[in-house]
Nucleic acid binder design. Structure first.
Length: 120
RNA sequence: AGAGUUGGCCAGGCAGUCGCUGGUCGUAUUCGCGAGAAUACGGCGGGAGGAAAGUCCGGGCUCCAUAGGGUAGAGUGCCAGGUAACGCCUGGGGGGCGAAAGCCUACGGAAAGUGCCGCAGAAAAUAUACCGCCAGCUUGCUGGUAAGGGUGAAAAGGUGCGGUAAGAGCGCACCGCGCGGGUGGUAACACACCGUGGCAGGGUAAACCCCACUCGGAGCAAGACCAAAUAGGAAUCCAUUUGUGCGACCCGCGCAGGAUUCGGGUAGGUUGCUUGAGGCGUAUGGUGACGUACGGCCUAGAUGAAUGACUGUCCACGACAGAACCCGGCUUAUCGGCCAGCUCUCUUU
């Protein structure tokens, strides 16, 4: 999985997928403005889903921007990780951060997650 | 050149790397007798806005019943036109602001009825008389007044002359107002036009209300199709006393009954889904909104939701902000830049 693509199979698509992650959360890393939940799957690849509440991130432009940046990071780095389903949750204040700040923040969380996963 | 004002246009550019999405072409694999379909990979070109926003109006489209009559309710409110329609737009009229260009205007009815109107003031609408003024006499009372003063946002027209005890539309002239007519205008309305009446009776209708006109309801999570689970119904035809259900309510309409037939439809998927009251150009009618004719154009269609990220570079250093069925408006947010018309001021020739 060294090619850097991002297809429909790599996304959490329905409510049942999301619920499964919430019920079987094994991985959890966070900062003040971001939270990642993870649960192992047996599909042979990772999947990602977003929960970005309108209450926390008020304008659609910022919600789109956050999703695009994180999705792009996931696309490039997904091969570094075991197969799992991840949910990215945005908290209040994230829309105040610039693109590079979000990239750095997510990168820190990502490697924390990789360590947590491999130590298991 | 500066100040103002109105209308229109643009919304960082370029290059590279890595992606996403739908279209099309090609190749491969699978399915199919076949037309073709699905999946994967590759090539090519497409991929947010002026407000995509708020959801405040209007319409298309879909379903409810074929959307019909009445009541209730809601909306609109100077006139004429435009439009699919509108609460929008255009032109005109009245009123207000400005030196002007121009801007603002919820602008029907207070003589159908009801309600409300603080303080001050004698009195806020049936009128009335605090200080005055005048007359009379018993010198502080009676009568006559509303010119003057005072209160107030507002005191039952204004100015002048006559008149009178003092005054007063009491009389007259002009201004204002009402009514009737005339003229101009499709009309709202206007008039330094004519006649007539001494003269309307406060404000508030974005208070109830009255008058005129308009409006059936719900929305793409509408609706249609495929279909695990689960439950026993569903569709068509016939009948319509009674029972029951339905939209804000009524008139009204549907369902239950009998017969025939067999599928039904939650998760999920497919569709609706972008060619449309579309945009561009030319000609033409119109003051204009806009209409008509001809030519050629196709310009996002996602669905846990694409349209991006990173790097370099240039400059004016980039605001507000992301389509979700589709259009027409309105409103609100917005870094800046460009173009055109008009008004005023200054300088120069």
């Amino acid at each position: 999985m060294t090619d850097c693509r991002f297809t429909r199979e790599q996304r959490l698509l329905n409510a049942a997928d999301f619920q499964r992650v919430f019920d079987k959360t094994k991985l959890k890393v966070s900062t003040r403005e971001l939270l990642i939940l993870g649960a192992a799957n047996d599909l042979g690849h990772s999947r990602i889903g977003f929960i970005i509440a309108k209450k926390n991130i008020r304008t659609a432009v910022h919600r789109n921007r956050i999703k695009r940046i994180i999705r792009n990071f996931f696309r490039v780095h997904c091969s570094e990780f075991d197969t799992a389903d991840l949910i990215i949750m945005a908290r209040r204040g994230l829309d105040q951060r610039s693109n590079s700040e979000i990239n750095r923040m997510f990168s820190d969380l990502w490697y924390k997650l990789v360590r947590q996963s491999s130590s298991r």
